[in-house]
Design a protein around this nucleic acid. Structure first.
Length: 235
DNA sequence: GCGACAG
DNA sequence: ATCTTGTCGC
């Protein structure tokens, strides 16, 4: 698929509805040995799109590989169409990985989207891989008030059905909005993310991806924990 | 018409 | 998201 801005927003929405019907939301059945986190940053005042994907051993959560791809940014931010801005760079970053992860946690929504096709779903659909949406705020849906203790959960309901979960991943922090992207179930989205929590609000894979994509001060420190030959970059 | 609106 | 000063809590 080749969507070059400016394109018809209406046609893009129709594409999302059509592609969403092709998503697989049944439980992922194979062993997950490698989990990745994926995120986008916008360097140079948004003139560039930088994708970062970092892979981890699924059991001990030690970092394995990192890929960073920077491309010119074309699209503006349009709520509901985030995938068209982010996915092309994420695909390039994914292609650089020597060892492909069985599961990718993506910053943003999965099916918790007006047309059930958030950026996490779009990445999973295009690559035909398992993805989970890990969003820091809500796009659509409603839920009961969340209890204060960490670990509290509420189902996220949209149009009368469960599209994901709202999780208090850390005390005194705003919750996470989790939803399946592709090839995982709603229940698995919750359990896989919980498995990747390590005391911070964001699960380790997306936290590292965010650090590299947005070039946080912590990125330099994290980079030292990776073998130089396991770091791939395209600029 | 008005409010909501991932990143 | 990005930019950026100041503040609060552990």
């Amino acid at each position: 698929m080749d969507w070059q801005w400016p394109f018809s927003v209406q046609q893009a929405r129709e594409f999302q509805t059509r592609a969403a019907s092709q998503l697989q939301l049944t439980p992922f059945q194979h062993p997950v040995r490698c989990i990745a986190g994926a995120d986008i940053g916008l360097p140079n005042k948004g003139s560039m799109v930088r994708a970062a994907i970092c892979t981890f051993d699924a059991n001990c959560l030690t970092p394995l590989e990192l890929s960073i791809v920077t491309l010119p940014n074309t699209m503006p931010y349009i709520p509901g169409l985030l995938g068209f801005r982010e996915v092309p760079a994420l695909v390039r970053a994914y292609e650089l990985l020597e060892n492909k992860p069985q599961l990718v946690l993506v910053d943003g929504q999965g099916i918790a989207h007006p047309r059930r096709f958030g950026n996490a779903s779009q990445l999973g659909w295009q690559l035909n891989i398992a993805t989970i949406g890990v969003a820091k705020s809500k796009l659509t849906g409603e839920h009961q008030p969340l209890e204060a203790p960490p670990g509290s959960v509420q189902p996220l309901i949209d149009e009368n059905h469960i599209v994901g979960y709202v999780l208090r991943s850390k005390a005194r922090c705003k919750p996470l909005y989790l939803s399946p992207g592709n090839r995982v179930s709603t229940e698995q989205s919750l359990s896989f993310v919980r498995q990747c929590l390590d005391g911070y609000r964001l699960p380790k894979p997306t936290r590292w991806a965010d650090a590299f994509a947005s070039n946080r001060p912590s990125a330099a420190k994290l980079l030292k924990l990776l073998s130089p030959d396991k770091v791939h970059q395209i600029t």
